[in-house]
């Protein structure tokens, strides 16, 4: 199976059931909305070490936001709804409320809700007040540039984490270029984020370790420097670099679409093989087969 000159492995990405939320951050200018969003999505690459995965979904024009100011849509994912609620309180409280001029709105319509503004309101020390507008309650917390306004509750919904593709290239430069092309295409898909730095991860992991305290460790089968060391290396001949793109989405269809466009964009001369990471199908609830994505794209 090939896209142009790049071979596509007949395997599947093993993705996991997660819980997701969409947070709309608005501010006086695009700069401040982005500053808050970047702060909120920092240190949120993997649930393994960060308790959640988060990223910027897209920027929003003023006409697309509840308060008609420039905005940014952020997606946050965690392994359960309770944990997701805690992460939202922490991150909105520490990264959005602190950022000048911002307001923060729920961006999802779902059955389950977690209380966010209803907890952050206590920062107002009794001076906070609320307003109910079109059946939604918002909290107004006095801050030094005016007020911070935040939705009382945020909707959370079942979501999908851990969609992925692995790009195996002839060298670092070629593989980076392909990864950049793929992430650029994937960011056009609504409902997904790429939680790693600029969407790309070099330290792919496997489950477990020789060290008992670690639940994950380096994915040695994809480390070029270990090709001659490990018993089964997946670094193909002529390849000297492997980069992974991980995708979290609000539903499996969005993750599949991101992977589909990513495969097409990443398939460039010098990319020897594109494959996907899985655990034999024993851990994740979703199997996203590359052959289905390539077939549909073709």
């Amino acid at each position: 199976m090939k896209i142009k000159s790049t071979k596509i492995n007949d395997t599947f990405a093993e993705a996991f059931k997660m819980w997701g939320a969409r947070v709309l951050i608005t501010a006086e200018t695009r700069q401040w909305a982005l500053a808050a969003a970047q702060s909120m999505t920092g240190f949120a690459t993997s649930v393994i070490g960060c308790k959640c995965e988060a990223g910027i979904e897209k920027e929003l024009a003023a006409s697309e936001t509840p308060d008609q100011r420039p905005g940014v849509s952020v997606l946050v994912f965690a392994t359960d709804s309770e944990g997701l609620g805690k992460r939202l309180v922490e991150r909105i409280g520490q990264c959005v409320m602190t950022c000048p001029t911002t307001a923060c709105f729920n961006g999802l319509d779902a059955e389950n809700n977690v209380v966010v503004g209803g907890q952050l309101r206590y920062f107002g020390d009794g001076y906070q007040s609320s307003k109910k507008i079109q059946q939604r309650r918002y909290w107004r917390i006095p801050v030094m540039d005016g007020e911070f306004m935040v939705d009382e509750t945020f909707a959370v919904q079942p979501a999908v984490g851990g969609g992925n593709i692995l790009l195996i290239g002839k060298d670092l430069k070629t593989t980076l270029r392909a990864a950049n092309a793929a992430t650029k295409a994937m960011r056009q898909v609504d409902g997904v984020i790429l939680p790693f730095p600029d969407g790309v991860v070099r330290s792919g992991s496997k489950v477990g370790s020789k060290y008992k305290s670690l639940i994950a460790s380096t994915n040695d089968a994809y480390c070029p420097t270990l090709r001659g060391v490990v018993t089964e290396s997946n670094v193909v001949d002529g390849a000297h670099c492997v980069l992974e793109i991980v995708i979290d989405g609000l539903d499996v269809e969005a993750v599949e679409q991101a992977m589909r466009v990513g495969l097409q964009a990443a398939a460039k001369p010098g990319i020897k093989l594109i494959t996907a990471g899985n655990y034999g199908g024993n851990l994740g609830q979703f199997k996203i087969h590359l052959k289905d994505l390539v077939g549909e794209a073709a």
Partner: peptide
């Protein structure tokens, strides 16, 4: 100041 809640209302 410009109250954000009022924008929505």
């Amino acid at each position: 100041f410009n109250p954000i809640f009022l924008r929505l209302m």
